[in-house]
Amino acid sequence: MPQQTAGTLTAAKKSTTSPRPAGTLYRGREGMWSWVLHRITGVAIFFFLLVHILDTALIRVSPEAYNVVIGTYQTPLMGLGEVALVGAIVFHAYNGIRIILIDFWAGGVKYQKLMFYIVIALWVITMLGFTPRHLINVFSH
């Protein structure tokens, strides 16, 4: 029923003296932040991809040229950057599955907030598996 749907939209609003606009079902909540993070991680991954294709293309130039450039990926600073990159990729991947489920699964819209927290939980588990292993590889060589 449309009127009930409209009613639930106002349910999150409450009178307050805060100058910030009142929240809605979407604004400032899981739906908005997952969308923001999906865009930010997507742009970051896109620009890394451009650079990564160019650096890999150096295998066509000479072994020395490739080794010099890939050596910069093995420094501690870049090692930490790779943790951020993998974190962005893993979030974008898991939240992408969430978006597909919202679009195609009958219960997707109903459970989109729960699925956002599942995305976060799976992201934490994946990063706990990746980060120590990667940092050992970066800092012990």
Binding site: P63, N67, I70, Q74, E82, F130, H134, N137
Partner: peptide, 17 residues
């Protein structure tokens, strides 16, 4: 590339080639 073996520190022309 990053989890097996020595990960990032093992990547060079020999590995990718």
């Amino acid at each position: 590339n990053l989890m097996l073996g020595d990960g990032i520190s093992a990547i060079d022309f020999g590995f990718v080639g």
